[in-house]
Design a protein around this nucleic acid. Structure first.
Lengths: 133, 133
DNA sequence: GTAAACCTTGAGAGTAGCTCTAAGTCAAGG
DNA sequence: CCTTGACTTAGAGCTACTCTCAAGGTTTAC
């Protein structure tokens, strides 16, 4: 209670499992998490923002090890800004590629689906899709 | 040798590791893979197509277990077409969500980058991004 | 007041999906 | 003949969860 949110509330808010959130905290990825007098983790808006950032970075493919390094750079302060900039820049390039790949995957599934639809509706033979797949 | 491609060639072509390809084969995910007289895996265009499909499904978040079930349905033939259709349909819905998430991630990183740029060019202080991240 | 219901905690086991290493086979090139 | 190199299998190791568990605090119900 106190001010701030419990693990459960944050899990719901950010669509992460409670396990994962505790796991990230234990790894030192979320620096701002406090404890209440019963040793329960309490999340302020600041720690929720950290967690949100970690989630974005993780989802864009960065390893927890690299995220940890990045978080530590953030905590050092101003003099690490150029280094942080280049980390995020590189990650953005990856995110661009991932976006492109996501589009391709969707296209593939759409194609596949229309192919199945043809078979189902128009009695085209199911040939196990040789040469197409 | 023979006709067809080696694991190495396919790995390069599809941007998968040789380990992963062998792993998929051993799991029964790629039914059409033959062996040459030295017991080496040889990939025809058909098996490459299978592998390509498996890769798309995997990349769109399907578990290897589910992919295996799907592949087995394909091998049974025509009478499984409706079931396969609904599997792919569901996967397409996931792919749509993933595409949206990929866009959001890219936006987040772009925002972050422009924020860093402002700090570097001395427009504003590095405040560790309270409330923003 | 105390029991039941419901949180939370840390420790640690289990899992998926690779990823890598070791040890060995085979075929061609110098 | 010997090295190089690509292949093989078995299995260990890794990351990032994911889950189970026992212990213990808090809340509500009577």
């Amino acid at each position: 209670m106190e001010h701030g949110f419990t693990v459960k509330q944050v899990a719901k808010k950010l669509n992460l499992s409670e396990h994962t959130i505790r796991f990230y905290c234990d790894k030192g990825l979320i620096p701002a998490v406090q404890r209440d007098r019963n040793n329960n983790r309490i999340f302020t808006q600041e720690s929720i923002n950290w967690l949100t950032g970690v989630k974005y970075l993780r989802d864009s493919g960065m390893s927890l090890e690299s995220i940890k390094k990045y978080v530590d750079l953030c905590l050092i302060g101003d003099e690490t800004i150029l280094e942080r900039y280049s980390i995020i820049q590189e990650q953005r390039e990856l995110a661009k590629i991932q976006l492109q790949e996501a589009k391709e995957r969707l296209e593939y599934l759409e194609y596949k689906l229309s192919h199945y639809k043809d078979i189902i509706e128009h009695r085209i033979d199911d040939d196990m899709n040789p040469g197409k797949w």
